[in-house]
Computed example of a mutant assay.
Amino acid sequence: MLEVLLIILSIFLICFVSFIYVLKHERRTLWAGMTFTASLFTFALLIFISLMDLTDIYSKNHPWLISVFLLILLSILAFIAGTILVLIGMFIYNGIKIILKEGNHWTNYLSLGLGILFILVLFIYPNFGHFYINDWVTYVYIFILLTTLYFIYIMIMYTFTAWINLVNPKNPHLDYVVVLGAGLLHGDQVSPLLAARINRGIEIMKENPGSKLIMSGGQGGNETIPEGVAMAKYAEKLGISKDKIIIENKSKTTYENIMFSHKLMGPNSKFCLVTNSYHVYRALVLAKNQGLKCIGYGAKTKWYFTLNAFIREFIAYVVITKRLQITIVGIIFVLCSIAAVFDNLIL
């Protein structure tokens, strides 16, 4: 048992050191989430095996320790099962709520659809899909299950990485605070969502004396003025002087927000991106793809909107990394196809 403990301790130290390395060098990759969760998992495994070892040593004189250990194990399993059920419930509840509040748009069905998919794949088919072991449909289900589990894993890593990138404990002094635009109300009015971004940007600017705000956003098809102009007017009403504001009014996408805003900065400038919390990580990935170093800050968003928006952001991230995702799903498909052919040939 001592040898096992030493092996797991070594793995934990490797994972933890890797996590610290990623934090210091480039935390805008999924390696941040992967090394963090690997550190948590191996640490929990270390504690679990230590408890097993202690229980084995002292159970002869203290038989009640076995009951305590089993209780801890059952509690962990119950927590995992409960977490899965709660997450599915949140997906469905938030999905219904956002449809009722935000309207009948296809993007508002993402949360509800994901919750239903999890129920179908994880619960309904295993209990009611009575197919023979050599039936091709079984392998179709296995392919769907493995693909679903893969994307659940990637989503978990994405979530942890996104949280990590919202925390900025030791920040360099910022020269610019880039506030990313969003759609305007009635063609020229800042929406509550966009106002939250601007308010957060003003807070950060005040924490960095001498810094300037860059209001970034072009003019959409149903807008009468560029978003950057409307954002600047909103900030001026809050008492921010014009000389503290730079307007970027050409961008149409988040990628262009970052690219055009960076062109307005001085050389070797340090800057941050301000957007809603669910959007920060994808914005940072787009900045990384342009070779730009920056940090991100999140503005508050209505809680019922956040989960659906986060799923939309995750899908957008999958699109950004589509070559990698297609490759991995393709590998899963090939392996399932080989297994199905091999199984049918034997039978």
Rank of each mutant, 00 (worst) to 15 (best):
L5N: 14
L5G: 12
I8Q: 15
F12A: 07
V17P: 13
I20C: 07
F41L: 03
T42G: 14
I49A: 10
D53G: 14
T55P: 01
T55H: 01
S59T: 08
N61E: 10
N61V: 04
L65R: 02
I66T: 07
F69A: 15
F69S: 15
S75I: 11
A78D: 02
G82P: 09
I84T: 02
I84Y: 01
I98S: 15
L100G: 15
K101T: 15
L110D: 06
L110P: 06
G115W: 00
L120T: 10
L122H: 15
F123R: 13
P126S: 03
N127G: 14
N127P: 11
F128K: 13
F128G: 09
H130T: 07
H130M: 02
Y132D: 14
I133P: 08
T138F: 04
I142C: 13
L145W: 13
L149R: 05
I152S: 08
I154E: 01
M155S: 02
I156Q: 05
M157A: 12
T159Q: 05
W163V: 14
I164L: 03
I164Q: 02
K170Q: 06
N171H: 14
D175Q: 10
S191H: 07
P192C: 08
R200G: 06
K206T: 12
S216H: 04
G217Y: 04
N222M: 10
E223C: 03
T224C: 04
K237F: 00
G239R: 09
S241R: 11
S241I: 11
D243C: 07
I246D: 14
I247Y: 11
E248R: 10
S251N: 11
Y255T: 02
N257T: 09
L264H: 07
S269H: 01
T275G: 02
Y278M: 08
H279Y: 08
A283W: 03
N289K: 00
G291H: 00
K293H: 07
G298A: 04
A299Q: 01
L307S: 02
N308M: 01
E313G: 08
E313P: 09
I315L: 12
G330K: 10
G330R: 12
I331L: 13
I332W: 07
I332A: 08
C336M: 10
I338Y: 05
L347R: 13
